[in-house]
């Protein structure tokens, strides 16, 4: 192991990691509301929109992110929508993540018993109020584990971004291997940096799960 080499290229990895995190957060930041709205549309069985949502979810979940990225990167400009690597990365992650988040929220919503909605309605609350004050708080607590798992999954998926020439961690590692043949060092740093990004998320996630459970939900 050449520690001088590692030391020298550490800042480069740092920058790449920052880019990975930025694109990851932006993508996930969009995926969460997208998933939320899709889940609510399915929960309330909104006519037409519900069909569109389920088609989107099936396409998104049953195609690899790499293919989705290529599609966004190469196909969209052909129909007049310009893209660049960053936009492409964020859009791809949001497209993939939206469906996974939708499924996480939907399972949470469906876990809340129907009598909860009915008793809220029979108290005279409007459907929106019942959703906001009664169903969602319970649903969110149920979906937290799936939600955290999705965030980790999506952050890991960022490793395919290099395919659309985004200078992320994977791109940097491949670049260094190609230039200097320092395979061990480059991959070692790649692993370390992914751990640095993901480990705190995992730990935070399990703390969150425990807190939600301790709050006394789901008796």
């Amino acid at each position: 192991m050449n520690w001088d080499f590692i030391w020298k290229y550490l800042p480069m990895y740092g920058e790449a990691a920052l880019l990975t995190v930025k694109i990851g957060l932006a993508g996930i930041g969009i995926a969460i509301p997208v998933g939320f709205f899709c889940a609510v549309i399915q929960y309330f069985k909104v006519a037409l929109l519900r069909r569109i949502v389920s088609v989107y979810i099936e396409i998104s979940r049953n195609t690899p992110l790499l293919i989705q990225l290529f599609f966004i990167y190469y196909a969209l400009p052909k129909i007049g929508i310009p893209t660049n690597p960053s936009v492409c990365g964020v859009a791809g992650l949001a497209f993939l993540g939206g469906s996974y988040m939708a499924e996480a929220f939907r399972s949470g919503l469906e876990a809340v018993e129907t009598v909860q909605m009915e008793s809220a309605l029979s108290l005279g609350l409007k459907r929106g109020q019942a959703l906001l004050y009664v169903i969602l708080p319970q649903a969110v607590s149920v979906s937290v584990p799936a939600f955290v798992a999705n965030i980790i999954f999506l952050l890991k998926e960022t490793s395919v971004f290099s395919a659309v020439s985004l200078m992320d961690l994977m791109f940097t590692a491949k670049d260094l291997i190609g230039q200097y043949y320092k395979t061990t060092e480059s991959l070692f740093m790649l692993v370390v940096f992914y751990m640095i990004i993901l480990l705190p998320v995992s730990i935070l996630g399990s703390v969150l799960e425990r807190r939600v459970r301790r709050a006394g939900f789901g008796s």
Binding site: E118, Q138, G216
Partner: peptide, 14 residues
């Protein structure tokens, strides 16, 4: 105007 109480405990657990 119509109060309703159900068989299963319908209190909001949260």
């Amino acid at each position: 105007k119509i109060g309703m109480v159900f068989q299963s405990y319908d209190l909001f657990p949260h």
